[in-house]
């Protein structure tokens, strides 16, 4: 990274502030659509942090995969389960929230002390940063990480098939299927039609 140290520091603090503010919004906002869009802000600022860490390819992959695929998927899911639902009040719920907050804060305190007291063995000399990370990543992926790489492709195929099978609607066996109709039908229609045939 060719920026001056002060510029890097300012960029880091701005990006971290954006990231943490948006993450608080994701967790705490009432409207879930706002949360989904704030999640995109979190992903974009994390990608900026990756660029600060000299990882251009992973930053681009982060934007492409998270903002382009995962976030769009989440927004589609929000649209598909679009139900304005007033959750029923549960007594003593605030106790759970306070307890969870306490536990999370203690985890954060523990992590902070551990991070600060651990002597990280950094070499004082400024290391030679490789300028083309894509070549280095490709070398790793096709030599010593080849097996996980291929397994990841199998896992992606399994996830794709599994998601389709889980999310599709039930097939309705129909005796008289004209060739122009889809073989599946929404379940609500199916139940209505079976009721009408029973009547």
């Amino acid at each position: 990274m060719n920026l001056a140290a002060g510029v890097q520091l300012v960029c880091f603090f701005v990006l971290t502030g954006m990231m943490l503010t948006a993450a608080v919004g994701v967790v705490l906002l009432e409207n879930i659509v706002y949360s989904a869009f704030l999640l995109a802000v979190v992903f974009l600022s994390i990608s900026g942090l990756y660029i600060l860490l000299n990882a251009d390819f992973v930053a681009a992959a982060q934007i492409l995969i998270y903002v382009g695929a995962v976030n769009v998927l989440i927004i589609f899911a929000i649209m598909l389960v679009n139900k304005q639902e007033n959750f029923a009040n549960i007594p003593k719920r605030w106790i759970r929230k306070v307890a969870t907050g306490l536990v999370c804060f203690s985890i954060f305190a523990l992590l902070t002390t551990m991070i600060l007291i651990t002597p990280w063995s950094l070499d004082a000399t400024s290391p030679a940063v490789i300028d083309n990370t894509v070549i280095e990543l490709a070398k790793h992926l096709f030599s010593d990480f080849l097996l996980p790489f291929e397994l990841a492709s199998v896992l992606l195929l399994m996830a794709m098939v599994g998601a389709i099978i889980l999310a599709r609607r039930d097939l309705i066996p129909e005796t008289t299927t004209s060739p122009l109709t889809l073989p599946e039908r929404p379940r609500e229609l199916a139940s209505v039609s079976t009721k009408s045939t029973e009547d």
């Binding site: 995962v70 990841a152 992606l156 399994m158 998601a163 889980l166």
Partner: peptide, 16 residues
């Protein structure tokens, strides 16, 4: 990142 994408797809299908 790869695993997270697969997990998001399967998780959203389960939620549906």
């Amino acid at each position: 990142i790869t695993i997270a994408a697969a997990e998001a797809a399967v998780g959203l299908a389960i939620i549906l």
